[in-house]
Structures are given as C-alpha cells and as structure tokens.
C-alpha cells in the first residue's frame, strides 16, 4: 500500500524520555573528557614511557635477571594464592548458599572484610604476628623459619588481599540458583561429589572463572601489602610491582615502565576477558554489585 501522507519527523522537543540533543552532546563530551584524562592518558603514558628508549632497551629491561626473578616470584605468589582462595570460595559458597544457618549474613560480611582493610594494614598484621618483634617471631627465628621478608609472607599478604574475590562472585549466584537442582540430584541417588561436579559446578563455571580472573589480576598486581612484608631483597623477595618501585626510585624510568607495561598488559587482558565474559555469559554471572 502506497503511503500518500508525508512522513512526519518527531521534533526533538517532543521526546519524553531523553534530553535535548545539545544537553546530550554536552554530557557525553564531559564524560569522555573525564575518561580521557583519568583513564586513557595513564594507560597511554605507560606504553609511551616504556618504549621511549626504543624496543631494544625495552626487551633488555624485561629480560634482565632481576626482572625475571621478580616475574617468577609474582607467578609463584599468584599460583599459591589463587587456588587457595578458589577452594575457600567454593567451600564458603557451598555452605552459605545451599544451607540455612544462624549467623550467615555476619559470615558474608566477614568474608568481604579484607576489601575494606588497607593493603598496608594487611601487611602490618602479619608483621605483628610473624615479624622479629611479633608474637611468634622469636620462636620462628629460633627454629630458622622465615615468614616475613620471605616467600611465605608474600604469599600470606597476597592471600589476604585477594581473599574475597572468588567467594563474592559465587555466593550471590549460588544463592540465587537455590538448591532445587542439587536436591533433585540427591533424590536421584547422586553422591555429594557427584552433585558438586555434575550439577553445581557447571552452573557456576563462568562466575568461577570471572572470580579467578579478578583474583589473579589483583594477586599479581598487589603492591602495598607485599611491600610491607617483603623487605625488598632484590632477586629474592621482589615481586613485579616492587621491582617497578625500585627501578623508578633509581631513576631507571624506561626499565620501570617496561616492567609496568607487562602488568598493564595483564590488566588490559583481564578487562577484555571480563567484558567478554559479561557479554557472553552475563546472565550466568552474579550481577549488580559494586566491585
């Protein structure tokens, strides 16, 4: 059917649920300027500074023995801390989401606690425990066990700051999913492990991956807590972020930014993976939370 009436264009002034174009453009411009100033430029400056002295210097800096030692230590710390917190996240989420018990909301709050503790304080509490003047410090020295200024301290501090990541992704999601499917599996004769591996885990796998991703990014990037317990012994207790600090303070900017660029790359990869997960499996992740 041919349309005889001319097509009318809605005048912008008649729009009911949006702002006039000028206001809209102004708001977008303001938001973009803020993003450019506070997010894009810091990221760009890392790359620019890292490559300032050329690619040769860049590769020299990231293949230097102390850098490699720092990378190794960072990987070890993350490789211990992430699985520990993964196991904790799963057990805590199982107990909290699948059972009703008193004190549950207090427990959830306590699990989030490390997020509200300053990283420096996280390092401090372990120093107070295990340091030379700490409670068990003298006993440890007697028995030649080193925690502070050694790998165990670094791992402990990392575990603390990444403590809630996996749990806080899983708990709300598993609470949402309820216990119907697990109960059905139990009625069909599945054992506890079978229920967990065949019913629960497939339902939360993407949220689990999401949590592990964020946990890992934080574990590899942690600075404050690790700085307190590390002692900055080059080649021994220096993680990548600490190595960045030392190089920076020695005015080796290009080298410092070169190492920083590796961590920035990790951050970008984490962000991309996060966005992809949210985009592809958004409905299988726990939503609507601030962190």
């Amino acid at each position: 059917m041919a349309m005889t009436t001319p097509t009318l264009q809605a005048p912008p002034a008649l729009a009911t649920t949006t702002e006039p174009p000028a206001v809209r453009r102004g708001l977008i411009a303001g938001a973009l300027a803020f993003i450019a100033l506070f997010l894009v430029m810091p990221l760009a400056v890392v790359l620019a500074e890292a490559l300032r002295r050329g690619v040769g210097t860049y590769f020299e800096a990231i293949t230097e023995p102390y850098t490699l030692a720092a990378v190794k230590l960072t990987l070890i710390a993350a490789a211990v801390a992430v699985p520990l917190n993964l196991v904790f996240g799963l057990t805590a989420a199982w107990a909290i989401a699948k059972f009703e018990f008193r004190g549950k909301s207090l427990l959830i709050t306590l699990i989030d606690l490390p997020f509200s503790v300053s990283p420096v304080i996280a390092g401090l509490i372990y120093t107070l425990m295990f340091g030379a003047q700490g409670w068990v410090g003298p006993w440890l020295i007697e028995h030649d066990v080193r925690i502070i200024f050694a790998l165990p301290g670094i791992v402990l501090a990392t575990v603390f700051v990444t403590f809630p990541f996996v749990a806080r992704e899983l708990i709300p999601l598993m609470q949402d999913q309820g216990t119907d499917e697990e109960e059905a599996a139990a009625l069909l004769g599945a054992s506890g492990w079978q229920i967990f591996f065949r019913v629960t885990l497939p339902n939360v796998k993407w949220a689990l991956l999401y949590g592990v991703l964020l946990c890992n990014a934080r574990a590899m990037g942690e600075f404050g807590a690790v700085a307190v317990v590390s002692g900055h012994i080059r080649g021994v207790t220096n993680t990548m972020p600490l190595h960045i600090e030392i190089l920076y303070n020695e005015y080796k900017f290009a080298a410092s930014f070169a190492v920083a660029s590796l961590l920035a790359l990790l951050a970008v990869v984490t962000l991309v993976a996060k966005v992809l997960l949210e985009w592809r499996f958004g409905h299988e992740l726990a939503h609507n939370r601030g962190r």
Binding site: I35, L43, V45, L214, M220, G221, F223, P241, F253, A267
Partner: peptide, 26 residues
C-alpha cells in the same frame, strides 16, 4: 561506548604501582 564501559574498570585491574608511576609521570 562499549570500550569506554569496559575501561571504567581499569583502576580495579591496573596494579596500583603501575597507576602510581603513570600518574606521577603524567
């Protein structure tokens, strides 16, 4: 828009030491 939306989380993902030297240099 999508890129910027993802970028908003950068401060969560970027290690603080990296952010520190980047901001100091900027």
């Amino acid at each position: 828009r999508r890129v910027i939306d993802g970028l908003v989380d950068l401060p969560f993902a970027l290690p603080t030491a990296v952010a520190g030297i980047a901001l100091a240099t900027l």
